[in-house]
Simulated scan of single mutants.
Amino acid sequence: MMSNSTGLLLHNAKDDDDEQSPFEEVAANISNKDDPTILCLTFRSVFIGILLTCFDSVVFQFFAYRTSPLDINIGLIILLAYMMGEFMSKVLPEKIFNITINPGAFSIKEHALITIMATSGTTTTFAIKAITVQRIYYNYPVTHVNGILFILVMHLLAFSIAGILKRYLVWPASMIWPKTLMSCCLMRILNIENQTETTETRWTMSRSKFFWLVVLFQFLWYWFPGYIFPLLSMFSFICMIAPHNIVFSQITGANGLGLGVLQFD
Score class of each variant (00 low, 15 high):
residue 8 L to D: 02
residue 9 L to T: 11
residue 10 L to W: 09
residue 10 L to P: 04
residue 11 H to M: 14
residue 12 N to T: 10
residue 12 N to Y: 09
residue 13 A to G: 09
residue 13 A to S: 09
residue 14 K to R: 10
residue 14 K to A: 08
residue 15 D to F: 09
residue 15 D to L: 12
residue 15 D to R: 12
residue 15 D to K: 08
residue 15 D to A: 10
residue 16 D to E: 10
residue 16 D to Y: 11
residue 16 D to N: 10
residue 17 D to M: 14
residue 17 D to L: 15
residue 17 D to N: 15
residue 19 E to N: 06
residue 20 Q to T: 08
residue 20 Q to A: 08
residue 21 S to I: 01
residue 21 S to N: 01
residue 22 P to L: 12
residue 22 P to I: 07
residue 23 F to D: 12
residue 23 F to L: 07
residue 24 E to H: 15
residue 24 E to S: 14
residue 24 E to D: 13
residue 24 E to K: 14
residue 24 E to W: 15
residue 25 E to G: 00
residue 25 E to L: 02
residue 25 E to S: 00
residue 26 V to T: 00
residue 26 V to A: 00
residue 26 V to C: 01
residue 27 A to N: 13
residue 27 A to E: 04
residue 27 A to T: 04
residue 28 A to V: 06
residue 29 N to P: 01
residue 30 I to F: 06
residue 31 S to I: 01
residue 32 N to G: 03
residue 33 K to C: 03
residue 33 K to L: 02
residue 33 K to Y: 03
residue 34 D to E: 11
residue 36 P to C: 05
residue 36 P to G: 03
residue 36 P to M: 01
residue 36 P to T: 05
residue 37 T to S: 15
residue 38 I to D: 03
residue 38 I to R: 05
residue 38 I to S: 02
residue 38 I to W: 00
residue 39 L to R: 07
residue 39 L to K: 06
residue 40 C to H: 09
residue 40 C to A: 09
residue 40 C to Q: 14
residue 41 L to E: 12
residue 41 L to Y: 15
residue 41 L to H: 15
residue 42 T to R: 03
residue 43 F to Q: 12
residue 43 F to C: 15
residue 44 R to D: 15
residue 46 V to G: 13
residue 47 F to Q: 06
residue 47 F to S: 09
residue 47 F to V: 13
residue 48 I to Q: 10
residue 48 I to C: 11
residue 49 G to A: 08
residue 50 I to Q: 06
residue 51 L to N: 08
